[in-house]
Amino acid sequence: MGAIYRREIGAFFTSSIAYVFLAVFYLITGFFFTMDNLAAGSTSLASVFSTMFVISIFLIPILTMRLFSEEKKQRTDQGLLTAPVSLTGIVLGKYFAALTMFLIATAIVFIFGVILSLFGTVAWMTLLSNFLAIVLVGAAFIAVGLFISSLTENQIAAAVASMVVLLMFFLVDTLAARVSMSWLQSLLYDLSFYTRYYEFTCGIFNLSSVLFFISAAVLFNFFTVRVFEKRRWS
């Protein structure tokens, strides 16, 4: 797992995906920080965190798209799958590499916090729980992206499909608002990533949501392992 993790981190930087990902992430969050905090004179990072959720939908697929699709295309998966490592080790090595990139990106909020603390009081606990929330959302999204990447040989297909699926997670909310059956509505709200995330940006720390995101991450990583199991046995 360690070897795969280190290789993937290296590959992010040699393939320039890391630079593109980080640059776009910083640019957009920086824009909202400037507009809604510096210009508006607010120390609440809620709008920055809301933005992060939306850009994650589009940027996380960029991180995960080539993780497995490229292996399959270049036939390097044969090297991994015949090495004395477990499938779980392979999947998690890649997963944590992508998660590390996402952590580097989201950690920008601490710099924002420090900048804001020069002008006023920052609610550090809220910031911290917000940060935890976006990391948990990222952890779930990356697992989804990784799973989709394992299904195809084409990076672009993986990226687009991941974006669509992640967008669906986001749009479930809008759908739920229009559903009249109450049981279905509450089910959709329960499954909504954004509703759960939004609570955090309001300063509510909900343990069940933490478990929800972690379960989603575990579930999709498990699916990815199953994809390889199945391919081996078919």
Partner: peptide, 23 residues
């Protein structure tokens, strides 16, 4: 394998080091 499982974006040394760790 028939098609060697090589990561094209790595140097030979880095790749073999990776395999060393992988194994």
């Amino acid at each position: 394998p028939e098609i060697p499982p090589l990561y094209l974006d790595m140097t030979v040394k880095a790749y073999l080091n990776f395999v060393f760790d992988l194994k």
